[in-house]
Design a protein around this nucleic acid. Structure first.
Lengths: 129, 129, 129, 129
DNA sequence: GTGGTCTAGACCACG
DNA sequence: GTGGTCTAGACCACC
């Protein structure tokens, strides 16, 4: 099984963000099994019709985060799923996103109820894909 | 009652973003009552040790969004609270934030339950401050 | 199809106002189709013989209003047409303009009839251009 | 009969604009009969709780436009109602206002119908006051 | 004193 | 190459 990365051009998120997110998510959901070889930088760049630098940067970030591991001379592979971050660190990473969301929501006059629904909706979307 | 704006320099959000967000939130929560005069552009700039242009741009955006109103020659004042955006637009603005949060959370192995708790926690924090 | 922006220097409206208005109008009339790439900030600035910052501010406002969307590193594009403001808000934005017009007209001794004709004439002009 | 000028502080229009508009309108509607003496600059400034300079500037503009006439040493008086401007000039003055209104309306997605209704509504408001 | 606009030049992230 | 942000300094209208 391999991964189908989709770049949405009408998106606010930068391309390399989109790549990183999709790979990370696929790995976390087990859709990219550990040991799987990733497509080469050039190959993926061609496939996505994207600048190779962009793919390289995404791969670099994923490697730094421990999602991918480099086997020098052979390529990049999906790392063993493991808890890289401590509980505290994970919270530290998610909290600012939660804060942005809540503050924006409150400023726009949304209720806590509506936000929870939005979250559930996003969860369903992530899992069904 | 007035507002205490705090700029955190080690922050991802730009300075003018931080100003806009804090004012918008305070207005939405009723902590900045309608009719209240805002600190002057130059005054706030001095207080925050920031270029007056930066404050002016933040105020301009808040005026465009209908949070503040300008009284020529007198200053800027908090506008009457009102719904500016359609339901669809508000959802549109919050959705990408919800998506980022959920994707990041899933990638880090958090459960939906944990996210909902985080959201509630942020809500409490926003309201208590 | 692209847009021809014209800055009239002997105008009451500021430069960045003129840019914003022309783009917004063209988008609303479908003359700037969704997905179309806008001229670059620097390019348009050169063409209009204007400071790039001025163009950037106009584009920023159009982005905030949802007329344009930014694709990081690639440029700015025309967004899908959509209703951003509530019915009440739209009225709120137009009302002061209608009031100015009517008061000025009455002060000059024009009749309601004449104003309605003027309005129709302007509508025709906007649509034909 | 005299005029009751009201300054609305929650207004976008500058104070001197508000004074000019109200006097001009009252004169055009015959509510300020020709020959009527205007309150003194200082008197009106005190009454409106406004800077005398502001009132003076408004009176100056009204005098330039021919709405008021100065009788040196005695004060300012309402001028005879008369057509000051040619047909062409009046059109030239009203047209840009009509254009702003129509362009803004179109950009916001309002119909010609809705604009005409707004105009009528404003006419009724001006006349009933 | 107030805000609003414009110019100029710099630095950054993204591709 | 693209936009986004910040600083600096100027000029204007309004009060």
């Amino acid at each position: 099984m391999t991964i189908q990365i989709v770049i949405q051009s009408g998106q606010a998120a930068s391309i390399h963000r989109q790549i990183v997110d999709q790979v990370r998510l696929a790995a976390a959901l087990g859709r990219l099994p550990a040991g799987e070889q990733m497509p080469s930088v050039r190959g993926l760049a061609e496939q996505l019709v994207v600048n190779p630098n962009t793919v390289a940067r995404a791969y670099l970030e994923l490697t730094r985060e421990g999602v991918l591991v480099s086997q020098p001379g052979r390529g990049l592979f999906v790392a063993e799923a493991r808890q890289v971050y401590t509980q505290a660190e994970r919270k530290r990473r998610v909290e600012p996103l939660a804060q942005s969301l809540v503050r924006e929501a409150v400023a726009l006059g949304l209720t806590a109820q509506q936000i929870h629904e939005l979250i559930d909706q996003q969860f369903r979307q992530v899992e069904k894909k």
